Simulated scan of single mutants.
Amino acid sequence: MANRIQGLLIPVISVLLGLIAGAIIMLASGYDPVAGYSALWDGIFGEIFYVGETVRQATPYIFAGLAVAFAFRTGLFNIGVEGQLIVGWVAAVWVGVAFELPKFIHLPLAILAGAAAGALWGFVPGFLKAKFRVHEVIVSIMMNYIALHTTNYLIRNVIAEKGDSTEKVFPSASLRFSNTLAELTDFSRMHWGILIAIAAAVIMWFILEKTSKGYELRAVGFNHHASQYAGMNVNRNIILSMVISGAFAGLGGAMEGLGTFEYASIKAAFTGVGFDGIAVALLGANTALGVVLAAFLFGGLKMGALNMPSADVPNELVDIVIALIIFFVASSYMIQWVYRRFKKGVK
């Protein structure tokens, strides 16, 4: 119980320390931290539209965080979530614009296409890691760039008719709310993807904590040699872990392509969502519930930051706050040391 409480306290304390450090930086830079954080709060909860946009922003963060966390829990570092998300985005949109089917067939098919594309992109570093012991970090980083330029080529020469972006997906493949439901959040871009994201978090928890395959995946992550000695197929589990991780990332891209934007366009640079997923997983302690909570925090900070210029505070300061939060999470040993000293002092 003590370890569980300590595990919960570290992210909370890290967030508080990050906000405090951010306030100090605002003061040192000549800005009013009270006005800045008030504007940040209003940008998240000030209007129902902002609440909807925060949920919309948190949706791909949940999938990106789950992708990173799943790999972490099984002893792998999937830094290729960005590329897996991009290929999932384009694959889902391609199905959404290439076919016109009944919604109960078209929407699941488009979502599964996104997951399959992400899984395929995760398979490559997993296979190379398993068969040739090529480090997954190196391969997955390179796969990000391959994904970016390959999808740009496909959009420009295969999928899109206009050249720079695809048509909007058919309504039968859209995750958007109906007008009646959209009106509840003042027509924000919030969509049904949030429910899929929550379901994905439950699935990850169930796989890792309640199934024998999840136990096997975690065991392989802890110790390859001991797992192999126990009769587990280490190579197969490495590949499976990266495939599942990639599928989560591809689903995040599908949510963007079918829900937030409803199209795919040529990208001059990475979206950044996949890389932010590393921070989300780290803050969420690589647990399903932690990832969901961290994703909402990051989504709120990203959306609230857009309102900070109204208080004459640069919204880039939120990126500093996020970086500080991650710094304090990474320095958790220091927080643990203070916590233990405090407990001794109380006794």
Rank of each mutant, 00 (worst) to 15 (best):
K213S: 10
G214C: 08
G214L: 09
G214E: 10
G214D: 10
G214T: 02
Y215R: 10
Y215S: 12
Y215C: 05
R218C: 12
A219R: 01
A219D: 09
A219C: 09
V220M: 00
G221K: 01
G221W: 14
N223R: 00
N223C: 04
H224C: 03
H224K: 11
H225A: 07
A226L: 09
S227Y: 08
Q228C: 00
Y229D: 04
A230K: 02
G231A: 09
G231Y: 07
G231H: 04
G231K: 02
G231I: 10
M232E: 14
M232S: 14
N233Y: 06
V234C: 05
N235M: 11
N237R: 06
I238L: 15
I238A: 06
I239C: 12
I239G: 13
L240R: 07
L240I: 11
S241I: 00
M242V: 05
V243Y: 06
S245Y: 12
G246M: 02
G246K: 00
G246N: 02
A249Q: 06
G250A: 12
G250M: 12
L251I: 12
L251P: 06
L251V: 08
L251Y: 00
G252K: 01
G252A: 13
G252M: 11
G253Q: 02
A254S: 07
A254V: 02
A254N: 00
M255N: 14
M255E: 14
G257T: 01
G259Y: 03
G259E: 06
T260D: 06
E262W: 00
E262C: 03
Y263M: 13
A264T: 02
A264V: 06
S265W: 03
S265A: 13
S265M: 08
K267Q: 15
K267Y: 14
K267R: 15
K267G: 04
K267E: 13
A268K: 13
A269L: 09
A269I: 04
T271F: 03
G272N: 14
G272S: 14
G272T: 06
F275V: 12
F275T: 06
D276C: 00
D276R: 01
D276Y: 05
G277M: 08
G277T: 02
I278Y: 14
I278A: 13
A279P: 03
A279W: 02
V280Q: 04
V280H: 08
V280L: 10
V280G: 07
A281Q: 02
L282E: 14
L282F: 11
L282H: 01
L283C: 09
G284D: 10
G284F: 13
G284Q: 04
A285T: 15
T287M: 11
T287A: 11
V291F: 10
V291K: 01
V291A: 08
L293P: 06
A294F: 14
A294K: 01
A294N: 03
A295D: 10
A295V: 05
A295R: 00
F296H: 03
F296M: 14
F296Y: 14
L297W: 07
G299I: 09
G299L: 11
L301K: 01
K302P: 12
K302G: 12
M303L: 15
M303D: 04
G304W: 05
